[in-house]
Amino acid sequence: MSQTQHNTTDNKLIAYEVAGNGPPLLLLHGFPQTRAMWRPLVPKLAKRFTVMTADLRGYGQSSKPATIPEMSFRLMAQDMVSLMASLGFDQFHIVGHDRGARTAHRMALDHPESIKSLTVMDIVPTEYLLTHMTTEIAKAYYHWLFLAQPEPFPETLIGHDPDSYFERCLLGFGKASLTDFDADLLAEYRTAWRSPDCIRAMCHDYRAAIEIDWAHDRADLNRSVTCPALVLYGKDGAMANLLDVPATWADRLSNMQHAAIEGGHFFPDQSPKATADALMKFLTAL
């Protein structure tokens, strides 16, 4: 395991790790995880790439903003562009899962000159999800609406038993059991999500999605990401069961490949080898 390092961007401390050698590759986790989720994939990727894994602001060991505007995907994306520039990488490949994928998509829109390729994992575009919120989607992804409720309502309920709530999230978005998650990684997630500041920041993440990010994405509906892009999704995930995931990206990614991986929303945890293989196939072909 590589050593945790820290970088300050916009007065926010970003925790990250570096491994390997080669072209730069940044991996971003999602809710309710941390950069630790990538640990099973890093050894294979690090054989060909310099691999950075980072905690998004609000998560893991990074700073926990106290306000909603500070948790926008635009600012999360700027954190990571600044982090990579500080490490000497003005261009890099970006891979994101869940909230990390939404951050990566925003990064590709706001900083196209920095992104060599974009990989998003098990998401449909933020604007699409919110604009086409059906009863079925709302039931499967109820946490978008629950976590966005005014402070401190969700924070108070979650705070009574964070493990129970967040473990339910790990199991609730398509075919998964707790045994799918490495015990050491679960322990790290629990340490992070038991923090009241982390709980608040994660709620602000979802509040910002509706109050801030949705408008940013609507403003960019006529724009398409032009770099090579890969859409990966869990074969048995809630999104795959409810939507044609690649089709939701067709008018937003002009150079797109896509593939389904065995598992649900958290397929990188359930199928780390298949996930790493899919990434390597895509990235090395560029």
Results as ranks from 00 to 15, higher is better:
residue 144 W to R: 03
residue 247 A to H: 12
residue 1 M to Y: 08
residue 66 A to C: 06
residue 227 C to P: 08
residue 116 K to E: 09
residue 187 A to E: 15
residue 195 S to C: 09
residue 225 V to I: 15
residue 53 T to W: 02
residue 176 A to R: 09
residue 105 H to T: 11
residue 124 V to R: 00
residue 285 A to M: 02
residue 171 L to F: 10
residue 140 A to L: 09
residue 118 L to Y: 08
residue 169 C to L: 15
residue 214 W to K: 05
residue 267 F to V: 00
residue 13 L to K: 13
residue 37 M to V: 13
residue 221 L to S: 13
residue 181 F to I: 11
residue 47 K to D: 14
residue 193 W to T: 05
residue 223 R to L: 14
residue 8 T to K: 07
residue 131 T to K: 13
residue 241 N to Q: 14
residue 147 L to S: 03
residue 69 P to M: 09
residue 222 N to G: 12
residue 166 F to T: 03
residue 78 Q to D: 13
residue 155 E to P: 06
residue 101 A to Q: 04
residue 86 S to K: 14
residue 284 T to Q: 12
residue 265 H to M: 05
residue 126 T to Q: 03
residue 173 F to M: 12
residue 186 L to K: 12
residue 62 S to L: 06
residue 264 G to T: 05
residue 118 L to T: 08
residue 220 D to E: 14
residue 8 T to V: 15
residue 62 S to W: 03
residue 184 D to C: 04
residue 79 D to L: 08
residue 79 D to P: 06
residue 117 S to R: 04
residue 180 D to W: 01
residue 178 L to E: 13
residue 236 D to Q: 15
residue 185 L to Q: 12
residue 266 F to P: 00
residue 46 A to F: 07
residue 175 K to G: 11
residue 139 K to C: 09
residue 247 A to C: 09
residue 179 T to W: 03
residue 210 I to R: 14
residue 1 M to K: 10
residue 222 N to E: 15
residue 166 F to Y: 15
residue 175 K to N: 15
residue 63 S to R: 00
residue 52 M to N: 02
residue 33 Q to A: 11
residue 143 H to Y: 15
residue 276 A to V: 11
residue 83 L to C: 07
residue 275 T to Q: 05
residue 73 F to I: 02
residue 185 L to W: 00
residue 262 E to G: 12
residue 246 P to H: 08
residue 190 R to G: 01
residue 15 A to E: 00
residue 86 S to Q: 15
residue 166 F to S: 06
residue 4 T to S: 12
residue 43 P to I: 07
residue 57 R to M: 06
residue 253 L to K: 01
residue 149 Q to A: 10
residue 92 F to W: 10
residue 185 L to N: 07
residue 40 P to L: 03
residue 85 A to G: 05
residue 280 M to D: 13
residue 257 Q to A: 11
residue 237 G to Y: 00
residue 52 M to C: 14
residue 11 N to I: 04
residue 203 C to H: 05
residue 162 P to H: 06
residue 82 S to F: 03
residue 69 P to R: 10
residue 71 M to G: 02
residue 269 D to C: 01
residue 197 D to A: 15
residue 48 R to C: 07
residue 247 A to T: 12
residue 26 L to C: 10
residue 239 M to W: 10
residue 280 M to C: 14
residue 163 D to A: 14
residue 23 P to L: 14
residue 245 V to Y: 01
residue 219 A to Y: 06
residue 62 S to H: 07
residue 229 A to I: 02
residue 268 P to T: 03
residue 274 A to D: 13
residue 122 D to F: 01
residue 41 L to F: 08
residue 201 A to H: 01
residue 177 S to A: 14
residue 66 A to Q: 14
residue 25 L to N: 09
residue 20 G to T: 06
residue 231 V to M: 09
residue 30 G to Y: 02
residue 16 Y to M: 02
residue 52 M to W: 04
residue 95 V to N: 05
residue 229 A to H: 03
residue 199 I to L: 09
residue 73 F to M: 14
residue 249 W to Q: 01
residue 54 A to D: 08
residue 203 C to V: 12
residue 284 T to I: 13
residue 178 L to Y: 13
residue 181 F to C: 01
residue 200 R to Q: 13
residue 160 H to F: 11
residue 148 A to P: 05
residue 200 R to C: 07
residue 233 Y to V: 03
